[in-house]
């Protein structure tokens, strides 16, 4: 997943934007020649574009997020990023066991409130 996708992503359930991103692993990739500029939100700096004086787009374009987590601060849901693919499914299509094993695997990098109260699954209600 590319950082610039954060300019478009919202929670599939409550539609809140922007989401919070925590990156666990990223790799360097070849930069594309031409690219669309982000409109509202910079995922690389995790701030609204109007609040930033410098964007560092060139740095951002050369990175690919391999694993991480997306958190909706409004409804408390979280979404895993694995194998470069964000998994943004509604509650009824998620796999509880896979989600819990993701939380266990990365628990040292995930905020306590997600581990204990995150929706739809968390280690507190496991």
């Amino acid at each position: 997943m590319k950082y610039r996708l954060m300019d478009l992503l919202a929670c599939p359930m409550c539609k809140h934007f922007p989401l919070k991103l925590i990156v666990f692993e990223e790799i360097e990739i070849e930069r594309p020649e031409k690219i669309r500029r982000c409109e509202l939100y910079c995922g690389y700096h995790q701030a609204m574009i109007e609040d930033l004086s410098e964007l560092n787009c060139e740095d951002c374009w050369g990175k690919e997020i391999v694993s991480g987590i997306l958190i909706c601060e409004k409804c408390g849901r979280w979404y895993p990023i694995e194998e470069e693919i964000p998994r943004m499914l509604p509650d009824d299509l998620r796999d509880r066991n896979k989600d819990l094993s993701f939380l266990s695997r990365w628990k040292s990098r995930i905020p306590e409130r997600v581990l204990s109260d995150g929706k739809p699954f968390n280690l507190g209600n496991a």
Binding site: L8, L9, A10, C11, P12, L40, L89, P90, L93
Partner: peptide
């Protein structure tokens, strides 16, 4: 950008 998502619950603003 490749995303696992459902067309009836789109994850976009």
């Amino acid at each position: 950008h490749v995303i696992l998502a459902d067309g009836e619950n789109l994850p976009f603003r």
